[in-house]
């Protein structure tokens, strides 16, 4: 098959494989908020972007915080 169509097939399959529903996205966001809130005072919920890249996935997480929580690691 010509190159254009090989790329087209790859794009279609990659998009299909990315089957994260809105519900599962919400679950990830909630879990991340809980985990990060132990260390930061979050100003808003994290924003997650998952995109296929070379047969793997690239996951971007953007999050901002009002303040850092002070803590000492238990020795």
């Amino acid at each position: 098959m010509k190159r254009d169509n090989v790329i087209r097939l790859k794009r279609v399959i990659d998009t299909d494989r990315l089957s994260l529903t809105a519900e599962s996205m919400e679950l990830i966001v909630n879990d991340l908020s809980v985990a990060l809130s132990d260390y930061f005072v979050l100003s808003e919920a994290p924003v997650i972007k998952v995109s296929p890249k070379d047969g793997k996935y690239e996951i971007d997480i953007r999050v901002s915080a009002e303040a850092l929580k002070t803590f000492l690691p238990v020795p």
């Binding site: 098959m1 169509n5 087209r8 097939l9 279609v12 399959i13 299909d16 494989r17």
Partner: peptide, 11 residues
Amino acid sequence: PHISSLRDADK
């Protein structure tokens, strides 16, 4: 060997 069949096969 066509796109629609291959895409469905992946699922």
